[in-house]
């Protein structure tokens, strides 16, 4: 968790995940090449590669963009989130092959510099049918490139989470550019319906998932807690929180995670110091609240990362009356020890 560069530590799960991604990509590309060789044997290798990589990249991009909302809708998808950046870098490599071979095939055979040709060979910006769609793909590639090279935690620390997150939000612009690159490009003259089916299904699914998950999250943020006493607000019943798990409450500006562990309730700020991950969606592992995004850990009683790490989050007071859980949204300084609220047998019943 230091700010210096650390080599990526691949654990067993990450290795399995990466081999699965690699295996899927190889299988997809091989299947595409073999099917083309059978049904369209006269196509050149460059053409086959451009088409195979384009469809594969678009499929992976849709999977990547659906992981976020899926994890918010169902926690079973969380393992995919841990490794999302691996999928992102893989997709960038595939797009790079697609872009390189496209420029090679379409723009490197004349006297013009291929990159100059990319922007000057077609200047029909006013026409939708003849729009220079290749430029849209090029700009999307630049965004994916910036995201891929800054995907390591080294850049997250050095750019700060705010700048890093802003940069990575450009993925939505890149997605729109990809949609239009496909729609104004290959769809204008392609007979095979596979690509239009992928685009329609993919974009409809993504929009639906993001709107459902986003609306739910904003609703949670806007819950009004009416019952107040001595600065505390009534948030839930003890039974609403599972052992070693949390429930999140947005009482004021930001969410607070109330954890139930070891016969007590503890409240900490929901925002992980690493990448603003939702601590309340994690669980207690080895006595530490563990962020579901990248496994950063904090002690529930003081919000401090266990030594030698130095990350700290704010803590809050929580109390129990009967079976009701009361939370005081006034934050203590980051890393402040709090006693928590003891769950008695009577409370638990």
């Amino acid at each position: 968790m230091g700010a210096s560069y650390l080599a990526v530590g691949w654990n067993r799960q990450k290795k399995i995940y990466d081999w699965l991604i690699f295996g899927f990509c190889v299988l997809y590309l091989a299947t595409f090449v073999v099917l083309t060789a059978i049904f369209n044997p006269d196509y050149t290798f460059e053409t086959v590669l451009i088409r195979a990589t384009s469809t594969l990249a678009v499929i992976i991009l849709h999977v990547i963009l659906s992981i976020g909302p899926l994890t918010r809708i169902n926690k079973k998808f969380l393992p995919l989130l841990y490794n999302r950046r691996h999928l992102g870098v893989t997709m960038f490599c595939i797009i790079l092959v697609h872009g390189s071979f496209s420029i090679l095939q379409f723009h490197s055979l004349g006297n013009e510099n291929p990159f100059v040709s990319l922007f000057t060979s077609n200047t029909h910006f006013g026409s939708l049918a003849d729009f220079p769609f290749q430029a849209l793909g090029f700009f999307a590639l630049i965004i994916f490139f910036l995201m891929a090279i800054t995907s390591h935690d080294f850049w997250l620390h050095n750019l700060s989470p705010k700048v890093w997150k802003t940069l990575h939000m450009f993925v939505y612009l890149a997605y729109f550019l990809v949609v239009m690159h496909v729609m104004l490009g290959v769809i204008q003259y392609e007979t095979n319906p596979v690509f239009i089916i992928i685009m329609l299904t993919g974009s409809f699914t993504l929009i639906t998932l993001h709107l459902i998950a986003g609306t739910r999250e904003v609703k949670k943020d806007n819950v009004i807690y009416k019952l107040k006493q001595d600065g505390y607000v009534l948030v839930c019943d003890i039974k609403d929180i599972q052992e070693d798990r949390a429930k999140m409450f947005c009482v004021d500006a930001e969410r607070i995670a109330v954890y139930k562990t070891g016969g007590k309730l503890f409240a900490v700020n929901n925002v992980c110091k690493h990448q603003n991950g939702p601590l309340g969606e994690g669980k207690v592992i080895d006595g530490c609240i563990t962020c579901p995004w990248h496994g950063y850990q904090y002690l529930p009683q003081n919000g401090q990362s266990p030594p030698p790490f130095k990350e700290k989050v704010s803590t809050y007071d929580v109390k129990i009356e009967g079976t009701h859980v009361w939370l005081n949204p006034k934050a203590y300084a980051e890393g402040t020890e709090r006693p928590g609220a003891v769950i008695s047998v009577v409370n638990a019943e």
Partner: peptide
């Protein structure tokens, strides 16, 4: 919270 709103 602001990021969740921006995403939506």
């Amino acid at each position: 919270k602001p990021l969740r709103k921006k995403h939506l």
